[in-house]
Design a protein around this nucleic acid. Sequence first.
RNA 1: UGCCGGAUAGCCAAAUUGGUAAGGCGCCUGACUCUGGAUCAGGAGACUCCAGGUUCGAGCCCUGGUCCGGCAACCA
Length: 566
Amino acid sequence: MTTSDSGASSDFIRARVAEDLRTNKWGGRVVTRFPPEPNGYLHIGHAKSICLNFGIAQENEGGVCHLRFDDTNPCTEEIEYVDSIKEDVRWLGFDWGEHEYYASDYFEQLYEWAVELVKKGKAYVCDLDAEAFKEYRGTITLPGTNCPSRDRSVEENLDLFERMRAGEFEEGEYVLRAKIDMASPNMLMRDPVMYRILKASHHRTGDKWCIYPMYDFTHGQSDSIEKITHSICTLEFEVHRPLYDWYCEALGIYHPQQIEFARLNLTHTALSKRKLIDLVEGGYVTGWDDPRMPTISGLRRRGYTPEAIRDFCGRIGVAKADSTNEIEMLEHCLREDLNKRAARVMGVLNPLRVVIENYPEDQVEEMDAVNNPEDPAAGTRKLPFSRVLYIEREDFMEDPPRKFYRLSPGREVRLRYAYFVRCVDVVKDENGEVVELHCTYDPETRGGNTPPDGRKVKATLHWVSAPHAKEVEARLFGHLFKDKRPGANGTDWLASCDPDSRQVLPKCYVEPSVANAKAGDRFQFERKGYFCVDRDSTDEKLVFNRTLSLRDTWARVQRSEKRKGR
RNA sequence: UGCCGGAUAGCCAAAUUGGUAAGGCGCCUGACUCUGGAUCAGGAGACUCCAGGUUCGAGCCCUGGUCCGGCAACCA
């Protein structure tokens, strides 16, 4: 697989574009488009399409990608969605320049084209009610039959269609249909509806229209108007292609090439619009931008970077086979990006108090800490160290199993950038629960360095000085669904939704340097994962979302030890 | 039962005009390490859906099957 500058791999669509360029099919032009319907929020699946369309445009000299809103159904569309879609595409890092279009801007042209087809005897007004309409259409195995109004005269059709536009009829009374073939094995070719009456006001055209064109009578012509070269869409539109072609040919207009690819599916999540709505409305998540949602806004709030998402979209490839990518792939891309750029910081999620017995009562030292070992330019910072600290509760075990080499009674570990400390006492409450550790430190290990005697420790722990610590809230997230493929083989997909996928830790401690962090800022809490500041943060208390944990080899060791039955 | 499309390791996914199966993720080892992170080195894993055929040679071509997906909104 060859890799281009954008990081995208070559695929059958890019190969096709290259071939068209070679044969000069489109006069050297490459014009694609991303055509969302403004009736919902964009998700990671849309990102795949966005990266594909904008990517192809970028990779080719003079290539352009349009952002076009497919707004032909006023009943479900809203301006709010238009705005969120624009924000998301922009955030992903793509620029459509002045090429922002709306199918609704083509309504007049579309109407004229409809009239033209009527005049050519290729379209007619049909008065079948919904039930009869269905009967005449036939079934998947039985051909349909011509409805009586199919033979209406051109004059009468023209008059009726004009009156439909004028608002003389009620919804459902009439529709305009293309006269194709009621016996076609392709259901979409059985005289598809071109226009329906909808007495709804449109978010852009207001009440100017009461008839609205259907997707099929809009999409191809919009592509045509915009001189799109490659109209890339997902597989379910494959059966629409003959109709797409039919309209362009019947109208004798510029005819773009529709190409279909398989939409993205991801394990442990749901991507259909319907399911996402159910999650929000059912209260399974806190909203469209819940950090567990696969929506662009959810991923953004979670702390994903546009770079990671783009990298992911480039790596998964584009093909025609239905496929489900493992979410681990997405997470890998994220870790790779965040590892390079996230500033390291000390943050203790489940605090356990530690007193350094031999450390002077009121002494405070400033320890030098590296901000990002992957990026020397990120510099260093000072970390206050004192007699009372917090360490991670799970970094101590009174009775450690084999292979656990963190702190335990009598054992010595390194406190990162600070000192070697040895656990000398364990304080418990009346329930026998460990509430405090007493340790001694070795002054010769200042900075965390190996002492003159060459003594080694097997673990390095993160810590926070208690008097200097800032209390924050941390929200940890797991996969939204327990099952890899929720709803697979007839199971209830919603039952697989994991209520414990969101865990709130109200009392965590972070080092003082992050005190002025702002919403959206990203950090790596050393050894604990990547975090970003949530917008729920207040002046009094910062709220952190854990974007993703670090790769956890210890967890893996535990798993394998368990398997071995130790 | 009709039409359209698809099928290459656990998951994605490559393979110029048929020339003898890339890569990534994941998994497993080992090295290194002041993050059990990162990095580096190595490894396991594919009768290319099946059965025939053409050919010196087939993942690619032909025939016949199998399985999976999509299509019967006045949604997109």
